[in-house]
Amino acid sequence: MVNEQGENRRDFLMLATGAVGAVGVAGAAWPFIKSMSPSADVLAQATTEVDISTLSEGQMITVPWQGKPVFILHRTQAQIDEAVKDDGQAMRDPEKDGDRIQKPEWLVVLALCTHLGCVPQPIGTGEYGGFLCPCHGTHYDTSGRIRKGPAPKNLPVPHYEFKDDSTLVIGKAIA
């Protein structure tokens, strides 16, 4: 574009100012965008600490983690054996039991059916000795793997670690 003085306005000064201005607009937008991300108090809830010392063999609890239910099952030897025995079976989402656990006696899975997000019923309600999702009849085994029904995937295993013998921490801390 040429103005009435016949000078090219797209010179260095204009370009530099335009570039600096664009950077400023982008920079000014950032705090607004970022303000919608989870706030510090929400992030502080990224992890849930659970006392598992009171959980006897065969017992299961549901704990809330990041607003979602998590099953913590203290598996009996029979339940462990059943899960390992089926490792070779044909499955929709093949996974070895050993890859889904850290300690064989503790199963920790996100309790949201991978079909449409219902919460499955407790251990022992479904075939294969596992969990039955009541909404559309999905059966998960004692390792939380999909064995029968419409769900496409196994119950996901959240990040967790054993802080000590009696404390399980679910989730990763976000700084």
């Binding site: 705090p31 607004f32 970022k34 303000s35 991300s37 706030s39 510090a40």
Partner: peptide, 10 residues
């Protein structure tokens, strides 16, 4: 002021 990202700025 304390928890929201850039909340203090807004």
């Amino acid at each position: 002021m304390r928890d929201v990202n850039f909340g203090w700025l807004l």
